[in-house]
């Protein structure tokens, strides 16, 4: 028997493929998200003033439920690496999971290659700073404080320990853009950043930074699926009410 999960998966896959092809032809109109607009500006500024971007990918692994946020962080890292690799101080990525650390190195290298600056790539710019959430935060704080960082971009899985990272960045006047898939992490980032990214906004960065048609198609698919979920919830509520009458 075909499960409901398989149907959702197949419909999403079909929509993503179809909309990707469509988005290649028609330009996208996106709503304003202050944090992502700020990120776009800060990327350009960091290259101009020769400071570094620190991309914190969090402590989520790829073999569990937190893999989605880790992959979203890597997609953004790839784009940032391509745009800022020629800076005097190239971007640094930190991860709290060994597989994510390895992939961050690979992603950075791919970004440099795409920018035609593969010779400038240094493997030490993709780092594993700790293997527990607090260990990771302690190691990543060190980067913000000591490596001429102007912007700390935190995209991935972060729990409450992200407050330590945000606090360290703030003390050094480092701008913060943050998004987490964890509710505790989102609450902490809301209190610690100027414009917080909440919920699925974590997955929008690629589309806003111009990472391609597939990222724009993802947004549309998410919107369609969200409306389907809303309709299902409302339908369920109506049926429950009708049952009791």
């Amino acid at each position: 028997m075909i499960s409901i999960e398989l149907i959702i998966f197949a419909v999403s896959a079909f929509l993503l493929l179809a909309i990707t092809l469509w988005k290649r032809k028609s330009p996208a109109r996106l709503r304003e998200i202050p944090a992502l607009s700020q990120l776009y500006r800060m990327m350009g500024l960091s290259v101009e003033d020769g400071t570094r971007l620190h991309i914190s990918l969090g402590s989520g692994g790829l073999l569990d439920m937190r893999g989605g946020s880790a992959l979203a962080g890597l997609a953004m890292l790839r784009h940032i690496a391509e745009r800022t690799s020629v800076s005097d101080n190239p971007p640094v990525a930190s991860a709290g999971d060994p597989t994510l650390g390895l992939l961050s190195q690979d992603t950075l290298q791919a970004g440099y290659k795409a920018a035609g600056a593969e010779d400038l790539y240094a493997p030490t710019t993709g780092r594993v700073t700790g293997l527990s959430p607090f260990g990771y935060a302690a190691g990543a704080m060190h980067i913000s404080q000591n490596e001429n960082v102007s912007v700390n971009i935190m995209i991935g899985h972060f729990g409450p320990e992200v407050a330590l990272l945000a606090g360290a960045s703030e003390r050094e006047s480092v701008a913060i853009v943050g998004a987490s898939d964890s509710l505790a992490g989102q609450a902490v980032l809301f209190a610690n950043t100027q414009d917080a990214l909440i919920g699925e906004e974590l997955f929008l960065a690629g589309a806003y930074l111009g990472a391609g048609a597939s990222h724009l198609a993802s947004l549309t698919v998410q919107d369609i699926l969200r409306w389907l979920v809303i309709l299902a919830l409302l339908g369920g509520a109506v049926m429950k009410i009708l049952e009791t009458i």
Binding site: L71, A75, D181, H215
Partner: peptide, 20 residues
């Protein structure tokens, strides 16, 4: 919202659009 975002991100990787 996070689950839907994870789903589409996973699909992009599965289709080879994102290659980490």
């Amino acid at each position: 919202g996070v689950a839907l975002g994870s789903l589409t991100t996973g699909l992009r990787v599965l289709f080879g659009a994102d290659r980490p």
